[in-house]
Design a protein around this nucleic acid. Structure first.
Length: 311
DNA sequence: AAGACGAAAGTGGTTGA
DNA sequence: TCAACAACTTTCGTCTT
């Protein structure tokens, strides 16, 4: 799932804050952001459309179908038919009293069958847990779906046995974030779930080992985008921060360093250079690193970089 | 007074024997 | 399994704006 920042057609949206048309879809932090002033136009990018495309009316008629699309986030993939609670038939007529009791019995049994055995119940609980965490973290739908698929795989391979459902669900979310390139730290995920960071981390390592996932390390650039948005800084600041990071990479200043600290320092320097100054503490709080770390990275960067060139 | 700076000691995770 | 290690944190005193 490769995601890139895609500029929307210039006329389609206007920033309500500054009126600029430079609105970008930012899939990494799941936001639609104004590049002019940094205003977050829409906080959650979700896929509302159908998964198919139609080029004329005939195709549209062929491909359109009733019902919601299948989803992995509901334990029966949302495909089951429910007998609704209205006592009316398809024509809207009232059901005869004799049939009413029968319909009632059918409803009751459907309820019982739908979430029947223990594994189904477990799955239903886990998937609702995943939805909860994803909601808390404002994650886009593709991450939620990915996490659900990962959890299903874990259940299938009997990996949940002996660990808590909450731990594995949180770990599945974290794996999904990493796979989809959404910048969320282990800290973020554990705070949105009832489990500790340590436990989520343990389950995470367990999952990627057993499911043979290859996880690319998070790039500091992903965090820059996130931090600048959270600090409501202008698009210009973010641009410069990315440039700083780019040069830092060339000079091999990033190797071995934590991406959050690196991104925090780059954001800090960019904020100072543009005059839209943020304190080290403000950035440290959002980046979940200490001021000292920002200072250390900052010093390394300032010692080696010539900022006049960047500006 | 708030923010920045930096030294020193402590913490948790990784690596290699 | 354990020690060594680097990155990072915590704490605290001092300097700067």
């Amino acid at each position: 799932m490769k995601a890139e920042n895609v500029p929307l057609p210039p006329t389609s949206r206007k920033c309500p804050e500054c009126g600029s048309h430079r609105i970008m879809k930012d899939y990494e932090s799941a936001e639609i952001v104004c590049m002019g002033c940094g205003y977050v136009v829409v906080a959650e990018l979700t896929n509302q459309g159908p998964e198919w495309r139609a080029f004329d009316d005939e195709q549209r008629a062929k491909r359109a179908r009733a019902g919601a699309p299948a989803t992995f986030t509901i334990h029966d993939k949302g495909l089951s038919t429910m007998i609704d609670w209205h006592d009316h038939d398809v024509y809207g007529k009232r059901i005869a009293p004799g049939q009413k009791a029968q319909i009632y019995r059918l409803r009751k049994w459907q309820r019982r069958i739908r979430v029947s055995d223990a594994t189904e119940r477990n799955l239903a609980f886990a998937l609702s847990e995943i939805s909860k965490i994803a909601n808390n973290l404002n994650l886009p739908k593709n991450v939620l779906e990915t996490a659900s698929v990962i959890y299903r795989k874990a259940v299938k391979q009997r990996l949940v046995r002996g660990r808590t459902v909450e731990g594995v669900t949180a770990a599945a979310i974290y794996v999904a974030c990493r796979q989809c390139g959404v910048a969320r730290t282990l800290e973020d995920v554990s705070q949105a779930s009832p489990m500790s960071k340590k436990e989520v981390g343990r389950s995470y390592r367990f999952l990627i080992k057993k499911l043979h996932f290859f996880i690319r390390p998070v790039k500091a650039g992903q965090y820059i985008t996130k931090f600048c948005n959270q600090l409501t800084m202008q698009g210009k600041v973010e641009e410069i921060a990315h440039k700083i990071l780019f040069v830092a990479k060339k000079l091999k200043l990033t190797s071995g360093r934590g991406p959050t600290g690196m991104a925090a320092a780059a954001s800090y320097i960019a904020s100072v250079l543009t005059g839209e100054r943020k304190t080290q503490r403000e950035i440290a709080e959002i980046a979940q690193v200490t001021e000292v770390t920002i200072r250390n990275r900052y010093k390394e960067l300032v010692d080696r970089l010539q900022f006049i060139i960047i500006l």
